[in-house]
Measured scan of single mutants.
Amino acid sequence: MAASAHGSVWGPLRLGIPGLCCRRPPLGLYARMRRLPGPEVSGRSVAAASGPGAWGTDHYCLELLRKRDYEGYLCSLLLPAESRSSVFALRAFNVELAQVKDSVSEKTIGLMRMQFWKKTVEDIYCDNPPHQPVAIELWKAVKRHNLTKRWLMKIVDEREKNLDDKAYRNIKELENYAENTQSSLLYLTLEILGIKDLHADHAASHIGKAQGIVTCLRATPYHGSRRKVFLPMDICMLHGVSQEDFLRRNQDKNVRDVIYDIASQAHLHLKHARSFHKTVPVKAFPAFLQTVSLEDFLKKIQRVDFDIFHPSLQQKNTLLPLYLYIQSWRKTY
């Protein structure tokens, strides 16, 4: 089996927390979720979201995140109150960019949308954001926290390059993509939290790379249903696996070995980020709550012996909000 052949990389499970039942964490995340308004986002309300009498641009960002990046939404709820709305805006910006690729039928249209967001970032730093909910909220975040323009532009530029429907040539190319998107998002989150620390940035770099790799793995069944495969070609070739094997949902050992190798790289990034947690300011830990969902996925895929098409991998963990709150309460990542 794939797991038994390579099992030495995987460390002990961390979500089991001995003695936790003896201490009762304060009510927090679930209460916040219940208090949030929840009407559906419609095209009509989106168009009017920044106008008078609408929910408001902040509510639009929150709803977009809740629907399109639920794990990011849950993590954002546990940030300090003064930072929450800015991170909602930042993550909503990322969602807007991420959904361009799947929402257009022609690359030219995707490039036009990316050009809109490039100009939007430029206009935000000229205090002239367009009348668009996410743009307005992002402008507020930039003004409030003096966010670095370079990180925002890196996210747009990398998403634009990724409009080509090509597999990553190697794991390094996937890591570079993750660094310029997910890690950049974390650098900006640290700025919102008021953290300027080399060790925190180092952790953000590795956690962002782990996030990018896990996202690529999780999306494999969806991409396969659209006749697309984006997994690193070098690892596929190493194990003699073709793109057609993934399109046919082949579950042979060599296919699972490909998934094992890729998942192991995410695991190593996560492990390395945690190896120097004592040197990272505690104030930075809330920015890294996504490690909970990353670890949850890596454990699940290990349990199914790296069968990327196993139905259990597509099921939401209903206990994730609780695990996130516990992680926040324990002040760790």
Rank of each mutant, 00 (worst) to 15 (best):
V46S: 07
A47H: 15
A47G: 06
A47K: 05
A48P: 06
A48V: 09
A49N: 11
A49D: 06
S50Q: 06
G51E: 06
P52T: 14
P52S: 14
A54S: 13
W55M: 15
W55S: 15
D58N: 08
H59E: 11
C61P: 07
C61I: 14
C61F: 07
L62R: 09
E63K: 10
E63I: 05
L65W: 02
R66Y: 09
K67H: 13
K67Q: 10
R68A: 12
R68Y: 11
R68P: 01
R68K: 15
R68I: 06
D69C: 04
Y70N: 09
E71L: 07
E71D: 11
Y73R: 01
C75F: 09
C75Y: 07
C75S: 10
L77V: 05
L78Y: 06
L78E: 01
L78T: 09
L79C: 15
P80M: 03
P80R: 06
P80K: 07
A81H: 15
A81R: 15
E82P: 15
E82C: 15
S83N: 14
S83Y: 10
S86Q: 06
F88T: 12
F88D: 02
A89K: 01
A89G: 07
A89N: 01
A89V: 03
L90R: 02
R91T: 01
A92P: 03
A92M: 07
A92S: 14
F93A: 00
F93C: 02
N94I: 03
V95R: 03
V95P: 01
D102G: 09
D102R: 05
V104S: 14
S105P: 12
E106A: 12
K107G: 13
K107D: 15
I109D: 07
G110P: 07
G110K: 08
L111E: 12
M114Q: 06
K118R: 10
T120H: 06
V121W: 00
V121P: 00
E122D: 15
E122N: 11
D123I: 02
D123S: 12
D123P: 00
I124T: 03
I124N: 01
Y125Q: 03
D127V: 03
D127P: 03
N128F: 12
N128V: 15
N128G: 09
P129V: 14
P129M: 13
P130S: 10
H131Q: 09
E137K: 04
E137D: 07
L138R: 02
L138M: 12
K140G: 03
A141P: 00
R144A: 11
H145M: 04
N146F: 07
L147Y: 02
L147Q: 05
T148A: 09
T148W: 02
T148E: 07
K149S: 05
R150K: 08
R150F: 11
L152G: 00
L152W: 02
L152E: 01
L152V: 12
L152C: 03
M153T: 14
D157L: 11
E160D: 10
E160Q: 10
E160I: 13
K161V: 09
K161C: 12
K161W: 09
K161E: 12
N162Q: 09
N162F: 07
N162M: 10
L163F: 14
D164R: 09
D164V: 12
A167I: 13
A167R: 05
Y168E: 02
Y168I: 14
Y168T: 09
Y168D: 00
R169T: 12
N170L: 03
N170R: 07
K172S: 13
K172I: 15
K172L: 12
E173R: 03
E173M: 08
E173I: 03
E173S: 11
E175D: 06
N176T: 15
Y177P: 00
Y177R: 04
Y177G: 09
A178M: 00
E179D: 08
E179N: 04
N180Q: 13
T181K: 04
Q182V: 15
L185H: 03
L188P: 02
T189K: 06
L190D: 00
L193Q: 04
G194R: 08
I195P: 02
I195C: 13
K196G: 07
D197C: 06
D197T: 07
D197H: 09
D197V: 03
L198G: 04
L198Q: 07
H199V: 06
A200H: 00
A200K: 00
A200D: 01
D201G: 04
A203K: 00
A204E: 00
A204S: 05
S205K: 04
H206K: 03
H206R: 04
I207K: 00
I207S: 02
K209R: 09
K209P: 01
K209H: 03
K209D: 00
K209L: 05
A210P: 00
Q211D: 13
G212P: 01
G212M: 01
G212D: 03
G212L: 00
I213H: 03
I213R: 00
V214T: 12
V214D: 04
T215D: 08
C216T: 12
C216P: 02
L217M: 09
R218F: 02
R218Q: 10
R218I: 04
T220Y: 03
T220S: 14
P221H: 12
P221N: 13
H223C: 14
H223R: 03
H223Y: 14
G224R: 13
G224Y: 11
R226N: 15
R226D: 09
K228N: 15
K228S: 12
V229C: 13
F230M: 14
L231M: 11
M233N: 05
M233Q: 11
M233C: 06
M233W: 07
D234M: 00
D234H: 03
I235H: 04
I235M: 08
C236L: 15
M237A: 15
L238H: 12
L238M: 08
L238Y: 12
G240Q: 15
V241D: 01
V241Q: 03
S242D: 03
S242F: 03
S242L: 03
E244Q: 07
D245F: 06
D245K: 07
L247D: 03
L247E: 03
R248L: 06
R249Q: 15
N250T: 08
Q251T: 14
Q251S: 13
D252V: 13
D252M: 11
K253H: 13
K253L: 13
D257V: 03
V258L: 07
I259P: 01
I259N: 00
Y260G: 06
D261N: 06
I262Q: 01
A263D: 05
A263K: 00
A263S: 13
A263T: 07
A266H: 01
A266G: 10
H267M: 10
H267Q: 06
H267G: 07
L268S: 14
H269L: 01
H269I: 02
L270T: 01
K271T: 13
K271F: 09
S275E: 08
F276Y: 06
F276H: 06
H277G: 15
H277R: 07
K278Q: 15
K278C: 12
K278I: 06
T279D: 15
T279G: 12
T279L: 15
V280A: 05
P281Y: 02
V282R: 08
K283A: 15
F285T: 12
A287L: 05
A287K: 00
F288K: 01
T291R: 02
V292D: 01
V292F: 09
S293W: 14
L294N: 04
E295V: 10
E295T: 08
E295W: 08
D296S: 09
F297C: 05
L298P: 00
K299M: 09
K299V: 10
K300P: 00
I301H: 00
Q302W: 06
V304Y: 09
F306N: 04
D307K: 02
I308H: 00
I308T: 00
F309C: 07
F309S: 05
H310N: 07
P311I: 07
S312D: 13
Q315R: 11
K316C: 10
K316Q: 12
N317E: 15
N317R: 11
T318F: 14
T318E: 12
L319M: 15
L319K: 12
P321E: 00
P321N: 02
L322C: 10
L322T: 08
Y325E: 04
Y325W: 15
Y325I: 15
Y325G: 06
I326V: 11
Q327A: 11
Q327V: 05
Q327M: 07
Q327D: 03
R330Q: 08
K331L: 12
K331A: 11
T332S: 14
T332F: 10
Y333F: 11
